[in-house]
Design a protein around this nucleic acid. Structure first.
Lengths: 222, 222
DNA sequence: CCACCTTATCAACACCGCGTCGATTGAGTC
DNA sequence: GACTCAATCGACGCGGTGTTGATAAGGTGG
C-alpha cells in the first residue's frame, strides 16, 4: 500500500516520501533536488545517478539529502506522482470526448493526448519504467495507472458492443489489457529509441489502426 | 557488437563470456554455476542474487567465481544465449508452417510454440528482460532477436498482401513492430503475474485474435 | 624424480554506493 | 540569554563488486 495521496495537495503535512516534518526555508532545497533529478535524468538513466549526484546538484552534502528524501527512489516517485496526476487530466478529457458519441475520433484524440503527455516528459517515463522492476511502491503506482486505463477501455469496448457498433469477440477486459500493454511497450521503445522501434511520427497511426481493427473489426474477413 | 557465436558450438575455444582458456575438470564448476543461477532465478530476481550466492551455490569462493565468468551478468547472458538458440528452432518451424500456404493456422501455431518455449523458461526470460535495461550486451542480443521476428512477420504480412489475402494498410514493418512488441509485453506481464495481466490460458486467444484483425481486417468496418 | 608450466583456489585488499549517528551551527522564540 | 528546533555534515558501518598475489595440486618432459 502506498501512503501518499498522489500529489496535487501542494505542501500540507509530512508525507511518506517528502521531507520529514516542518516547512522552513528548506523548501528551496527540496525543489532543487527534484530539479536536479529531472535534469540528470535527461542525460543518463536512473541507475547511473547516485544520491551524491543529487545532493551535489542541489548544493548540499549527501547526509543532508536524507533530511529531504528517504532515498533516491523517493525522489523519482515524487516526480512520477506529479506526472501521473497530470496525465490523469488527459485521460479524463479523452473519456469525455469518447462519451460524446464520437468514439473513433475520441479514441484517436485520447491516445494522442496520452502520447503527448508522456512524450513531453520522456526522461521521467523511462525512469519510471526502470524503477518499476525494482521498487515495490513504483510497481504499485504503475499498477494503479494501468488498471485505471484498462477499466476505462474495457467500459468503452463494452458500450460500443452494446450499441452494436462493435462486434462481439474476446472478453472486453482481456482485449483492453493487451491493447493498453501494447501502447505502453511501443511508446517505451520509441522513447528509448530502441531498435526495432517505431518512428516518433508513426506511433499514433499504427497504434490507432490496430485499436480500431481490434475493437471494430470482424473476427476474420479476407 | 557481441563477440560470441551464439552458443551451440559445444566447447571449442575461449569465448567472451565463458571461462578463460583450457578445458580441464573445472567444466563441472562452470556447469554448477549456471545451474545455481537458474535455480536461484526461480526463487528471486537477478538483482537479489549476488556473485557470492552463485559462488557458494557452486561450492567455490567468490574470487574463484571470477575464474569462470567475468561477472554475474555474463552468467545470465550465457543462459539466455542458449535459450535464444533453442527458441530460434521454434521460430524456423513456425515460418515453415506459415510458408506452406496455411498462414492463419501457421500464425497460431507459431505464436503458440514461441509462447511455450518462453513459458517453460519463465525465470530466465524475466531475468533477460531485467538485464536488458542495464546491460549493453543483453540489449544487443534482445535487439537481434526482436529484429529477427520483426523481419519474419514483415515478410509474412507483405506476402499475404501480395496474394490478396490481406488488405493494404499501415507499412508492414510498422505493423510488425507493434505486434511483436505487444506480444513481448503481454507475455512478460503474464509471466511476472503483474496486475493487470492476462491469465495464462487466455494469452494466446487474445493475441492471435488481435494479430488476425490487424493483418487481415479491413480498416474500419461496423 | 624433479623442475616446470598451467589450472584452480582463496585470503586480503581497494573501491563504491547506501543509509545512519552524533555533533554542530544558526535563526527564532519566550 | 537560555531554549528549541530546522538544517547541515564528518565519520562510520555495511554490503556489494572486482582485483591481486600467494599457494596448492595435477600433468609433462628432460
Amino acid at each position: 500500500m502506498r501512503h501518499v495521496p498522489t500529489a496535487s495537495q501542494a505542501k500540507p503535512a509530512p508525507n511518506g516520501r517528502g521531507r520529514r516534518g516542518s516547512r522552513a526555508s528548506g523548501d528551496d532545497r527540496e525543489r532543487a533536488i527534484l530539479e536536479t533529478a529531472e535534469r540528470l535524468l535527461e542525460e543518463r538513466p536512473l541507475r547511473e545517478i547516485s544520491v551524491d549526484d543529487l545532493a551535489r546538484g542541489a548544493g548540499i552534502s549527501r547526509p543532508s539529502f536524507y533530511f529531504y528524501f528517504p532515498s533516491k527512489d523517493a525522489v523519482v516517485l515524487t516526480i512520477i506522482d506529479r506526472l501521473v496526476a497530470a496525465a490523469a487530466g488527459s485521460r479524463e478529457q479523452a473519456l469525455r470526448t469518447l462519451a460524446e458519441g464520437e468514439p473513433r475520433a475520441g479514441l484517436r484524440q485520447g491516445l494522442e493526448d496520452l502520447y503527448a503527455a508522456f512524450r513531453s516528459r520522456r526522461a521521467v517515463v523511462l525512469a519510471a519504467a526502470e524503477l518499476r522492476t525494482a521498487n515495490d511502491e513504483a510497481r504499485e503506482l504503475w499498477t494503479e495507472v494501468m488498471e485505471g486505463w484498462v477499466a476505462d477501455v474495457t467500459a468503452v469496448i463494452e458500450s460500443e458492443r452494446a450499441r452494436g457498433a462493435a462486434p462481439p469477440g474476446q472478453p472486453a477486459r482481456d482485449l483492453a489489457i493487451a491493447l493498453v500493454q501494447m501502447n505502453e511497450r511501443v511508446q517505451y521503445a520509441t522513447f528509448a529509441d530502441e531498435s526495432p522501434s517505431l518512428e516518433d511520427d508513426r506511433v499514433l497511426d499504427v497504434l490507432v489502426d490496430i485499436w480500431l481493427r481490434a475493437i471494430y473489426g470482424a473476427a476474420e474477413p479476407g
